[in-house]
Design a protein around this nucleic acid. Structure first.
Length: 410
RNA sequence: CGGGGUGUAGUUCAUCGGUAGAACGCUCGGUUUGGGACCGAGAAGUAAGAGGUCCAAUUCCUCUCACCCCGACCA
């Protein structure tokens, strides 16, 4: 991709009023654009990062046997009446009427999944069922805030599993926990698995995947030695206590919730009649669990965690491009730059080439630092036919041949 | 929904009773090229909207709307 063709270009100023680092940097670097409070366009750069996050999630979930699909975002009132959530969740739902018929924009999909399951006459051997999709969620937040971290419209991956027994549900629940840990590790985020209440989704406790950060909205208590962690809404420990599971000390921190998993039990299947016939001929409700990850919130969280005074620093696994090629204009180096770019493309290296003819060296470096692609290559008359290789998070520069660069990128 | 803040050029801001200004960005011309270069020219505005006070309102007052922050709430 040639930077001269990329929409939009970076800008020096952050939007008026923006305070959250993710908001300022994502807008300045051209990853997102705000339409209204809590609602953003994913611009080409932001879209690339989110697609990479989604692909990592997809790979790990598919490994657990889950199947991807896509459910509708506009739902009839009737299906929400079945569980009583048209009323009980009305605060968070966008509800509206058209042609005398009532609808809601999707804020979650339990009802839709249960409807699918009961409709398809599934037999014992079909279980467990594991279905997921990536889709937009509409939630009427009282206050949208913190850039892309709490929006009224955002992307979510939601996975739903259906089981014959509680044991089987928890078995898969643990599988998903492991998959989530792999996902966040690959994305480059350090997460804590935190016990929390299930809110309006379930009476049982749920688990949240939290990234420690001062801009987080949740407060968690966690052990400095083992994996123990609880959300303050249910926490029975306080700072300085001895950990209930080991000899460690309890600490506290603000944290951003990037994922959560809920053991739903049989609440929804009983209300909606998602039943199976067991060996003895009894009609039994299926056991359900749901599991969410917010790819767009993850995008913002990454920026909160990985930035410096110059801009964003993407982890390699989710960077919008693998390398940022900077050409410092000089007639004698034009061919070299073009050749380096073409060779990288031929070798399937995802490269953003700053080919602008009207930008100074300083401007190009500032642009590269702001966008935050982890590897920067420079071609200039100073590199004399070679290529300067530098990573975003270090000052060290190496002068390499094209072959050496390709070798290093492998 | 309660409290606070802010709305002026594409963006960030100045002007704060006498009728619109800068920087950045953009367009054109020229000089530049290792850390957001320089010179010249140019385009760009219903001062968020409505009402009020005043000889005169971007400026003061009222209401509305929008955005940001704190709180409440939150899957």
């Amino acid at each position: 991709m040639r930077y001269s063709q990329l929409f939009p270009k970076t800008q020096k100023e952050a939007p008026r009023g923006a305070e959250a680092e993710n908001h300022k940097l994502l807008v300045r670097a051209g990853f997102i654009d705000q339409l209204m409070a809590g609602s953003f366009t994913l611009l080409p750069l932001g879209f690339r990062v989110v697609e990479k996050i989604k692909q990592i999630i997809r790979e790990e979930l598919n490994t657990t046997g889950a199947q991807e699909m896509l459910m509708p975002l506009m739902h009839p009132r009737e299906i929400w009446n079945e569980t009583g959530r048209w009323e009980s969740a009305k605060e968070v739902m966008y509800q509206f009427k058209k042609d005398n018929k009532e609808f809601a924009l999707s804020f979650t999909h339990e009802e839709i999944i249960v409807d699918l399951i009961r409709k398809h006459n599934i037999k014992l051997s079909d279980f467990p069922l594991k279905l997921y999709h990536f889709s937009t969620k509409f939630r009427h937040e009282l206050r949208a805030k913190s850039g892309i971290l709490r929006g009224r419209e955002f992307l979510m991956k939601d996975l739903y599993s259906a089981h014959l027994t509680e044991d089987d549900m928890y078995k898969y629940y643990n599988d998903v926990t492991s998959a989530y840990l792999k996902i966040f590790k690959r994305i480059g985020l350090d997460v804590k698995v935190v016990e929390a209440s299930g809110g309006v989704f379930t009476d049982k406790n749920s688990h949240e995947f939290q990234v420690l950060s001062s801009v987080g909205e949740d407060t968690i208590f966690y052990c400095d030695t083992c994996d123990f962690a609880q959300n303050d809404e249910i926490a029975k420990v306080k700072v300085g206590d001895k950990c209930p599971n080991c000899d460690g000390k309890i600490l506290t921190s603000k944290a951003i919730e990037v994922g959560n998993i809920f053991p739903l039990g049989t609440k929804y299947s009983e209300k909606m009649g998602a039943l199976y016939t067991d060996e003895k001929g009894n009609q039994m409700p299926v056991w359900l669990a749901s599991y969410g990850i917010g790819p767009t919130r993850t995008l913002g969280t990454l920026v909160e965690v990985y930035n410096d005074e110059k801009g964003i620093i993407w982890p390699k696994s989710v960077s919008p491009f693998e390398v940022h090629l900077v050409h410092i204009e000089d007639p004698s180096t034009e061919e070299t730059a073009e050749k380096v770019y073409n060779t990288l493309v031929e070798n399937k290296v995802d490269v953003l080439w700053d080919d602008r003819k009207d930008a100074s060296a300083g401007e190009k470096f500032a642009t590269a630092d702001l966008i935050g692609i982890p590897i920067r290559l420079v071609v200039s008359k100073r590199t004399e036919g070679k290529i300067e290789f530098k990573t975003r998070n270090s000052e060290k520069e190496e002068l390499l041949s094209l072959e050496e660069v390709l070798e290093k990128l492998k």
